[in-house]
């Protein structure tokens, strides 16, 4: 017993924290594009790294065939339960027969629907995540379609501290600045800092990457390198005005010079950019990034404490 897909939405896939250990076989991590929203979704439900549904632009309509508790995070898709609007970033009990319906995103691109106890799907190569470009994982390696049925794994009708399982709606969906550490191939450009002087327009995007246009980056002797590994968030320069930012389902290796890499704390911001948006890059370095990561970690621990109903003086 679980969820029946009535309408699939624009592009809805099963995702989790990602696939580890297969880059050497050219299998990318995949996983939720907005890891922050993904993690908070599971935290709200007391879950550990369970599979969620990643919605893109327009969310699905689902029918529950068993009682459970759900939460929706990420871009606000105006969710409603049996026609009545419900809050994002909050745990909601649902009953057998209830209909959850998501609309299009007010701002941002991706929303996450999580289920207490997770979804009962087979892990493929250690992960629930779907990579539709190679037909791997999730629901037969594809996006959801009407008529699909996904069973719950360990549904719960009750959850401790249900009233404290809510968070304020975050504000990063409209941000358009991404912090970048230069390298590994910034020395291939006459002036790599030019990256920070221009806005770049998103031309197209999918879960593999973002094509951007703008600026002017002059190379020293061409944009091609001997193919090497591509990190998630790598800013590849394919021409003097053309960038490709690598995302979760990217090819693991490639031959464009990588002028810099978006820091992992800003990948959630990237995940909410769409065609037409203007992105600006801001220079940072690895030392500052470590501090940002520590702050982020502390913030997540605080969120966990709030959700679990612990008082603030336990924080420090």
């Amino acid at each position: 017993m679980g969820i029946r897909v009535i309408e699939a939405g624009f592009f809805t896939t099963v995702q989790d924290g990602g696939r580890r250990g297969y880059l050497k076989y050219a299998i990318p991590e995949s996983g939720a594009a907005d890891k922050r929203a993904y993690e908070i979704c599971n935290l709200l439900l007391g879950n550990n790294q369970e599979a969620v549904l990643e919605c893109t632009f327009l969310g699905p309509t689902l029918e529950f065939t068993k009682d459970n508790i759900i939460a929706i995070t990420g871009a606000d898709m105006s969710p409603s339960l049996n026609g009545e609007e419900i809050s994002m970033y909050m745990a909601h009990p649902v009953k057998k027969g209830d209909i959850l319906s998501l609309k299009s995103a007010k701002s941002g691109v991706r929303a996450y629907i999580g289920f207490c106890g997770g979804l009962d799907i087979k892990k493929v190569l250690g992960s629930y995540s779907t990579n539709t470009s190679i037909g791997l994982g999730g629901l037969q390696g594809r996006a959801l379609k009407p008529g699909d049925f996904i069973p719950f794994k360990k549904p719960k009708a009750k959850l401790k501290n249900l009233s404290s399982r809510r968070l304020p709606y975050p504000d990063y969906f409209e941000k358009n600045t991404l912090r970048v550490i230069l390298g590994p191939q910034d020395d291939r450009f006459v002036n790599a800092d030019e990256l920070f002087n221009h806005g770049y327009k998103v031309i197209t995007f999918n879960r593999m990457g973002y094509k951007l246009e703008g600026g002017h980056l002059e190379s020293k002797g061409g944009y091609d390198i001997i193919s090497d590994g591509i990190p998630c968030g790598a800013v590849q320069v394919s021409g003097e005005k053309n960038l490709i930012i690598a995302a979760m389902d990217r090819q693991t290796t490639g031959g464009y010079a990588k002028i810099g890499c978006v820091i992992s704390a800003d990948l959630p911001v990237l995940s909410h950019k769409k065609a037409g948006d203007i992105i600006r890059f801001e220079k940072t370095d690895i030392k500052k990034t470590h501090r940002i990561l520590l702050e982020e970690q502390r913030e997540m621990e605080n969120i966990k404490r709030i959700i679990e109903g612990k008082k603030w003086w336990f924080l420090k």
């Binding site: 550490i181 390298g183 590994p184 001997i226 590994g229 990190p231 990588k258 990034t289 470590h290």
Partner: peptide, 18 residues
Amino acid sequence: FLLGGDSSIIVQFENEIS
């Protein structure tokens, strides 16, 4: 030793395929 953002390191040898 080159940095690929905050989560990867690239150790690069001579620039040739051999």
